[in-house]
Amino acid sequence: MFHPLRVGAVERITDDAVAVTFEVPAALRETFRHVPGQHLNVRYAVDGKEIRRSYSLCSAAAEPPDPPVLRVGIRLVDGGAFSTYALKELAVGDRVEAMAPTGRFTLEPRPGLFAAVVAGSGITPVLSIAATLLAREPLARFCLVRGDRTVASTMFLDEVADLKDRYPDRFHLVTALSREEQAAGLPAGRLDQERLTALLPALLPVADVDGWFLCGPYGLVRGARAALRTLDVDRGRVHQEVFHVEDAATPPAGTTAAGTTAPDATVPGGAAGAEVPAEATLTATLHGRSGSWPVENGDSLLETVLRRRADAPYACKGGVCGTCRAFLVRGEVRMDRNYALEPDETEAGFVLACQSHPLTPEVAIDFDR
């Protein structure tokens, strides 16, 4: 369900990025109380056309009785309808509709050592995670390895500097710039697999890290995951969120059958040659109500549901945000792309409805699981 929220502030944080704060009415405080690392799905009409986007919350998570603070970072994307509007026209007093915070790229504060590798706007959810963790848990430490093009293009510089000042013994920051040399610190260059494999053991005891958080463009996340595999980090300690996929022509992510194991969908492979049946019926459960409909013209499961249920959850439709996550109750599907679900989720039977196509005559999914 979407709720109208008033824009309380629009702050220019780089030449191509803004931070937008939404005001939360008293009646909706518990609805919009978020876990650090979650995101908002927003809806707005631009030139009469409905636009939906997903933006991570950068603000620390507030505990009752303090009201929740909803602040998101938006970076301009070439051709991006909402990001262009946010940077050029969005103003205080405007109203934007938003769903309750969602997402599983999260960390509930607890003692331990945690680390993140981010690039670009990937800092956004990690800023919320680190700020909340360090404020609530005195026995926690956090190491942030971040990459960006230049100092001028780096989002939330002041907020990260504030964490260094407030927690000098518990927050460790390492910055790499790809297009600018620094007076001190790492030489210029991207944070790729080879560099991270050598760098991470020099920064912290890799085996002692309780949780890794990787966020940013797909290339960065893929390289960081590969580096951690090389360093023998347990897969269960690695969490990822992809903000931008450079190659839209990624091969299919694999086949998932109800009750079976699916491959790690960030690695191309699986059912590249699988045929979609000529006729298939989808049964979907959403908000406690179920319906069955034919899948037409090679449509995805999400497109099939949306023709009958306008309240079906989605944002990006690109396999990135995870908003359309559903449990595969029956049948078998092919997911074309998956950059949102982690391996344990696909292994448990969850799929992305926007990327899934039936491979059996009958398929059933449940959005409520």
Results as ranks from 00 to 15, higher is better:
residue 131 A to V: 11
residue 133 L to P: 03
residue 136 R to T: 13
residue 142 F to S: 09
residue 144 L to P: 02
residue 144 L to W: 07
residue 144 L to M: 07
residue 144 L to N: 00
residue 146 R to P: 09
residue 150 T to P: 11
residue 151 V to C: 03
residue 152 A to L: 10
residue 152 A to M: 06
residue 154 T to C: 07
residue 155 M to G: 02
residue 155 M to K: 00
residue 155 M to I: 12
residue 157 L to N: 08
residue 161 A to M: 12
residue 162 D to W: 13
residue 165 D to R: 14
residue 165 D to F: 04
residue 171 F to G: 01
residue 171 F to S: 07
residue 173 L to M: 01
residue 174 V to G: 05
residue 177 L to K: 01
residue 177 L to D: 01
residue 185 G to I: 02
residue 185 G to N: 03
residue 186 L to A: 01
residue 186 L to P: 02
residue 190 R to G: 00
residue 193 Q to K: 08
residue 195 R to F: 06
residue 197 T to P: 01
residue 197 T to L: 02
residue 198 A to C: 08
residue 200 L to W: 01
residue 202 A to P: 00
residue 205 P to E: 11
residue 207 A to M: 12
residue 207 A to S: 15
residue 219 G to R: 00
residue 220 L to W: 00
residue 220 L to E: 06
residue 222 R to C: 01
residue 222 R to I: 03
residue 223 G to S: 07
residue 225 R to K: 15
residue 229 R to W: 15
residue 231 L to D: 14
residue 234 D to S: 14
residue 235 R to P: 13
residue 238 V to K: 13
residue 240 Q to S: 06
residue 241 E to F: 07
residue 243 F to H: 15
residue 244 H to W: 15
residue 244 H to A: 11
residue 245 V to M: 06
residue 251 P to W: 03
residue 252 P to L: 03
residue 253 A to Y: 12
residue 253 A to E: 08
residue 255 T to H: 06
residue 255 T to S: 08
residue 257 A to C: 15
residue 257 A to R: 15
residue 260 T to M: 09
residue 264 D to S: 13
residue 265 A to L: 05
residue 268 P to F: 10
residue 268 P to R: 09
